[in-house]
Amino acid sequence: MGKKKGFLTTEFYLAVFLAAILLFMAVAAREFYSINNLMSLLNSFSYILISAIGMNLIILTSNIDVSAGALISVVCLSIAALGKQGIPFAGLMAAAMVIGAVLSTLNGLFITRLKIPAIVATLATTQIFQGVLPLTVDGSIYDLPASFTWLAFDAKIFGIVPASVLICLIVTVAALLFVKYSRFARKLYAIGNNSNGARLSGIRVDRTVVWTYTIAGALFGISAVIIATAGQRVTTTMGSGLEMTFIAAVVLGGTNTAGGSGKILGTVIGAFILAMIAPAINYLGISPDWSDAVKGAIILISVVVGAAKYIKKKRVIDDPAARERSAA
């Protein structure tokens, strides 16, 4: 329980840090708070967060998914093909979630059935996802109909807030409740902390992990819809590289990649910080060339701060690196 308290403070620090940046932006670059910028920031925050929640669940079980970006590319292209036929938004969303879930379940099966470590298994599937895409479509799918871009162009709440934010809100609230109250989520923590122990206490570890991947896949699918429908053209590399951003959001939020600890709330703040770095830098008049460096520095600093607290608390006995190994 003492540990739980420690992680609460991680989120607290993060929130303070975020508030400090927001305040700083208010003083240094008022323009940052223009409606348009805020809304486009919220839009990218939405798709980062939705996927990051999925990634968070996976990381809780002490696994990882580096194929998320490639998977999103596959889903984007698939729904673009459907959207070309004029299938309405609801159909696209359903299709995206199903395709995402199926592909991600494959990852889960690979990992559990064949006992391949998650990072390597998803590394391999990344290459397959990436390779399949350009084969099935020659170039990009473009000139997509208005029904396809409905989410980005027309769906605005009160005429201002993009609907993607609403989707994100629903997913986030659901995830918070889910992690807090469901027995399934408790199993995730158990598996992440000690998968052998969890197995011996009657949890079907493999099955739970596969389901986690399935859920995460559906969430990746939702993100893919937001990303794909941003314009009238969908290319084969829409999601490439995003997986690292998702993982970074989770890590920044204080979740240990060794699994077993971490909260969705932290991920929410982490995703928000990552989403605002690029526009904030642009509004501050700094060349966007520095945005990646700032991103890296922020993650590194927050992780070091987190680790420093951790070391003070628990010397010797339990270091995360060791736990990672025993859990894997």
């Binding site: 890590v251 060794a258 520095w290 945005s291 460096a293």
Partner: peptide
């Protein structure tokens, strides 16, 4: 600092990439 290797090098990956870009 006992930070897991994956997290550390993920963060430093962004950092080095960003510095090279900057």
């Amino acid at each position: 600092a006992k930070i897991s290797a994956m997290v550390t090098t993920l963060a430093s990956m962004f950092l080095y990439l960003g510095m090279a870009r900057g």
